[in-house]
Design a binder for these strands. Structure first.
Lengths: 243, 243
DNA sequence: AAATATTTGTACGTATGTATA
DNA sequence: CTATACATACGTACAAATATT
């Protein structure tokens, strides 16, 4: 275990620390050493000596970076560069969603509207990429969804997978993560508001099939129509009047 | 040992704390007391006694919540409920943007594509809302932009304001925050990559005016065209070939 | 204008739980 | 099973910023 050769760079000047600069220095360490997600980070004590601050400060900075998924802390094992996911976005928006609705369901409505907007924005590129293809994986997911739905079971995870896979066809990983993130916010906030579940979920299930068919046939407008139909029961349940 | 199902209010059970549960208890405190952004939080020492953990633990939890903008810490003054902004999203994406491009500019390209997608998704609703109106504030911003541009000055802040004001017309605050957030990511990452600034920025400036005119005249397709034109110089500079 | 009280920021020491070799 | 390395937690003391008297 070669532990002497940490920190090629890192605070040549160990004195004179400004608040927050510890976090920045750890980020710089990752950048300067070109670390990728999953790579091991120095131990906390090593960072202490390298940066020249106390353990507490390093720990607070690491917690901060961990909440941003810039580092990942595994108890008793070590710290590693994080996956840089959108988890903090989800956590923040979920909190906002369950906090704000003292008055209205605006927070959740806005999330759903963002989901619709993202899906609609994907439509053009998606049809261009899926036209003339067959997509057995997506069809299999819709099959599962139908089975679960007619059995009265929840199909949340399958739904999530469907939208994630569909978005992955775009080739833009950020968009895919956003789609998944807002899906998570939506499904996390919804049950906490004590609303009746959307009644005609059958329409939602069928709409998934329509989306695949429309994309495969290269009909962007049909895809957009299917997307709107997909969200219609939900928006009805939320009493959305806009858009 | 009894491990789960806590949160009666705060600190009924002072022993047996799991990692992360302190954060959750503080969030519960905000929710149960229906605090709004800007409301004062208890002091750290008060939280210590209330939750029954040490100050260090409370501090780490607070730092975590502060990075999510769920609380705001003011040195020597106190802690307050945060604005629940999308700042953590911006911070994470900026870091990803400057970290990943060892190979390519994909991270930045994806951000720009999201910006385009969001703007295009706004087009329909925006024209519906702006049709037949006059918008001197937006025009004034474009005027300023033209002045700055022809003087060779940067107009980043004005540009930001323009897109923020435009998005605010939607009535969906989340969309507005997303638009602003991705603007920030874009402008924060771009200069760190050592690229030449986009050459024909004049076109970008003019496109802003076209966007306002198109929306005011209720022509959604013209608005979408203006949006595409707005991003064209940038996408050329990035060498984007897709979409 | 200056001293003081309150509150957050930093540092350090120590003990304990936990995963790995 | 033991030993080791590491993360987690606690407590205290002091520094720095802010507000109040």
């Amino acid at each position: 275990m070669n532990k002497a050769a940490i920190a090629p760079i890192l605070g040549a000047d160990a004195r004179m620390q400004r608040p927050g600069s510890v976090t920045q220095q750890i980020k710089n360490y990752i950048l300067l050493n070109k670390l990728k997600p999953g790579d091991p980070m120095p131990t906390e004590t090593e960072l202490c000596t390298a940066i020249g601050v106390s353990r507490s400060s390093v720990r607070e900075a690491m917690r901060q970076l961990a909440t941003l998924d810039i580092v990942e802390i595994r108890h008793g094992h070590g710290t590693f560069v994080g996956q840089l996911s959108l988890a903090p976005l989800v956590e923040g928006l979920v909190f906002r969603g369950v906090l704000s609705p003292g008055d209205d369901l605006t927070a959740l409505k806005e999330v759903v509207d963002v989901r619709v907007a993202l899906d609609l924005a994907m439509a053009g590129e998606l049809t261009a990429r899926l036209k003339g293809t067959v997509n057995p994986d997506l069809d299999a997911l819709v099959d599962d969804m139908e089975r679960q739905s007619s059995a009265g079971e929840s199909f949340a995870e399958i739904d999530r997978e469907f939208h994630s896979v569909l978005a992955s066809r775009l080739g833009n990983r950020l968009v895919q993560q956003l789609v998944t993130a807002f899906w998570e916010v939506h499904t996390a906030v919804y049950p906490q508001l004590g609303l009746a579940p959307a009644s005609d979920i059958e329409d939602t299930v069928l709409a998934h099939r329509s989306m695949v068919r429309a994309a495969e046939s290269g009909d962007a407008e049909a895809l957009q129509a299917a997307i709107v139909a997909h969200y219609a029961p939900l928006k009805r349940a939320l009493g959305s009047l806009d858009t």
